[in-house]
Simulated scan of single mutants.
Amino acid sequence: MLLPDYIAAHLDKPFEYGRLDCVLFVANWIKHKTGIDYLDGLPHWASERRALRIVKDMGGLEVAMDGRFERIHPNLAQDGHIALRRGGLMLFSGPHIVGPGLEQLEFVDRMEAECAWCF
C-alpha cells in the first residue's frame, strides 16, 4: 500500500482514542512500511485520559519519538515521514501534513510541522 492509498482508506474516519488517534494513525503506517510495531509493549488506551497518562509516563510525545526515530528538520521531511503539530502526530504528504481530525482526516500546510522524524 502506498501513502495515498493509506490516507484514502482513512479519509472519512473520525478521531477515536484507541482506534484512530494520531499515534495509531502514524504507528500503523510505520508498521505497514517496516513491519515493526513501535507500540509493542505499551499498554492499550481507549480514552483521552489513559492516552495522556501513557504519553506522560514516556516523558512526552516528543521525547518518545526521539527515542524511537531519527529527528530531522521538517524542511527535509519526505512523504510518509512523521510530523509533530500542536502536540499531535501527523504524516507528511506532499504540501501537507495529514492526521486524524474530529470528523475526518485533516490536511494542514506542512510548514506547521514543529518537529519531524524519519524511519
Results as ranks from 00 to 15, higher is better:
115 C>A: 12
101 G>P: 08
17 Y>M: 07
33 K>Q: 14
95 P>R: 02
59 G>N: 01
57 D>I: 11
62 E>C: 05
65 M>F: 07
100 P>Q: 00
79 D>W: 10
81 H>R: 11
68 R>K: 14
88 G>T: 14
78 Q>E: 11
35 G>V: 00
67 G>I: 15
118 C>D: 00
59 G>A: 01
93 S>N: 07
2 L>E: 13
75 N>I: 12
79 D>T: 08
51 A>P: 10
92 F>H: 01
80 G>R: 15
115 C>I: 07
40 D>V: 11
7 I>E: 03
17 Y>V: 08
100 P>H: 01
64 A>S: 07
101 G>T: 04
7 I>P: 13
87 G>W: 01
31 K>G: 02
70 E>S: 13
87 G>T: 09
38 Y>F: 15
14 P>M: 00
12 D>H: 12
108 V>I: 09
116 A>K: 00
101 G>V: 04
46 A>L: 06
15 F>E: 03
112 E>G: 06
38 Y>C: 13
112 E>H: 12
66 D>N: 15
81 H>S: 13
22 C>D: 02
37 D>I: 06
97 I>D: 01
79 D>R: 04
79 D>F: 11
37 D>R: 04
116 A>H: 02
66 D>E: 12
38 Y>H: 15
115 C>N: 10
57 D>F: 07
67 G>A: 09
45 W>I: 05
4 P>S: 07
73 H>D: 14
25 F>N: 02
45 W>T: 03
70 E>T: 15
16 E>C: 11
40 D>W: 03
109 D>V: 06
10 H>N: 14
114 E>D: 06
40 D>A: 15
53 R>H: 08
50 R>G: 00
114 E>N: 04
112 E>N: 14
76 L>D: 13
107 F>Q: 02
3 L>K: 10
99 G>Q: 03
57 D>M: 15
102 L>C: 11
115 C>W: 12
53 R>L: 11
115 C>M: 09
13 K>E: 07
51 A>W: 06
79 D>P: 01
27 A>P: 06
7 I>G: 08
22 C>P: 09
71 R>C: 09
20 L>A: 04
93 S>R: 05
92 F>N: 00
29 W>Q: 01
35 G>H: 02
93 S>C: 10
51 A>I: 11
47 S>R: 06
17 Y>H: 11
88 G>P: 03
60 G>Y: 01
31 K>Q: 10
11 L>K: 15
98 V>Y: 01
23 V>Y: 02
95 P>C: 02
64 A>E: 04
47 S>A: 04
36 I>T: 13
96 H>T: 10
66 D>F: 09
33 K>H: 03
1 M>H: 12
30 I>N: 02
54 I>T: 00
21 D>Q: 03
110 R>M: 05
15 F>Q: 02
62 E>H: 07
65 M>L: 15
37 D>E: 07
9 A>F: 09
58 M>I: 14
62 E>W: 01
102 L>Q: 14
29 W>E: 03
12 D>S: 08
